[in-house]
Design a protein around this nucleic acid. Sequence first.
RNA 1: GGGCAGGUGGCAGAGCGGUCAAUUGCACCAGACUGUAAAUCUGGCGGACAUCGUCCUACGGGGGUUCAAAUCCCUCCCUGCCCA
Length: 387
Amino acid sequence: MFFKIKNKFGKARTGVISTPHGEIKTPNFAFVATHGFIKSLDDKEHKLAAPELTISNTFHLYVTGKVNEVKKVGGLHKRFKIKNPIMTDSGGFQVFSLGWGKIHKIGKISSTILLSTSNVDSSKNPVKITSNGAVFTYDGKKYALDPKKSIKIQEDLGADIIFAFDECTSPLHDYEYNKKSLIKTHKWAAECLKAKKKNGQMLFGIVQGGIYEDLRKESSQAIGEMSFDGFGIGGSFGEKQMGKVIEWALSGLPEDKPKHLLGIGAIEDIFIGVRKGIDTFDCVIPTREARHGALYSKVGKLDIKKGLFAKDRKSVERGCECFACAKGLKRKDFHLLFKTDKEKAQKLATLHNIFFYKTLFAKIREAINSGKKNALDKLEKEYRELI
RNA sequence: GGGCAGGUGGCAGAGCGGUCAAUUGCACCAGACUGUAAAUCUGGCGGACAUCGUCCUACGGGGGUUCAAAUCCCUCCCUGCCCA
């Protein structure tokens, strides 16, 4: 067994996923390293950040022609000098983000559901989706991806955990679209399992179904019955439905396998996920927002580029031991650095937010392991400014 | 003293008779970012009322030409460079 549950508190749980590159203590967070490294960091800085888990991307590594190069040196770990476990996403998200996401001008979380025929007019979609796979138009070129090919690439990349190729639907897609899409995603899931040849990698199946209870439950049941090593919950959630959707999506999955919540990572959503029984998360939020000047702290997210921080001599987060804070960088230093040396500022901000997230997850595990009734609530209150 | 070039919103810097409350950049303010198309994007940025909008004060000071001036003329002040 690759996964051991250690402690449970309600549905929340701690555990350990064993991989060829070490153990992942859960709950845990995969920092997004699309092209190999976390954005803005080089190999040394990546090492300094010491992410316990990262997730790279099949689509981007494929279209930038890096797959063969990675394969030749023996996989992502070797190519990028990464010792810790790595996941790769299948490219399923790009079916959405480069397709409907562009047309709908929207991310995977939305508070509005706009039902209109133009939202499903696939002639406008730069990604052509058929029952067999998807053809992307990207940078003026065409790239095809399907379950078999995605798995092959992911085997070449050699991550510890790989994902099934799915269709991530848009928040603006209606019930009918999601229902049809689900047939595809389930068919593709079976094809992925069949295509998998290599051992030593865990393959996670993905539950879809949008924000619709019956579809989520149906998908959960169908995917849950397949012989995946773990499961991802993908697709759109809607701002208010997050908890419910997770619950439905987990309803048909075997308890003793790891559950990953794809692409979710706002602090408040992490707490929701953990309480529902999610083991791992991944999200661009901590790293992207760092580059954009948002530094995480329990007293709130600091938009460090704002004028009010120009003379602020306080540290970003009291007692923070990230590389930058440990060196004595204060809020005003970060503020100035974003003006004088943006690249360096982005690196340091990235290191800070990674440290912040790692600390958060360590505390979440601690809270669950403590077995104390209010430990998670107390922790959540500590982070109230971010929720 | 002579010659030349200039003085535009917090700064830099366009505009050189009407379409100019004035391009653009920086700064500033507000917002966004959830399996990375984003090392980013979107608004605002003279004042007042404020919904498109309306009114006021504005392109160094003063005076003039004109239906109309940031834009043309005169004059004064200031700045930079060059020659004495």
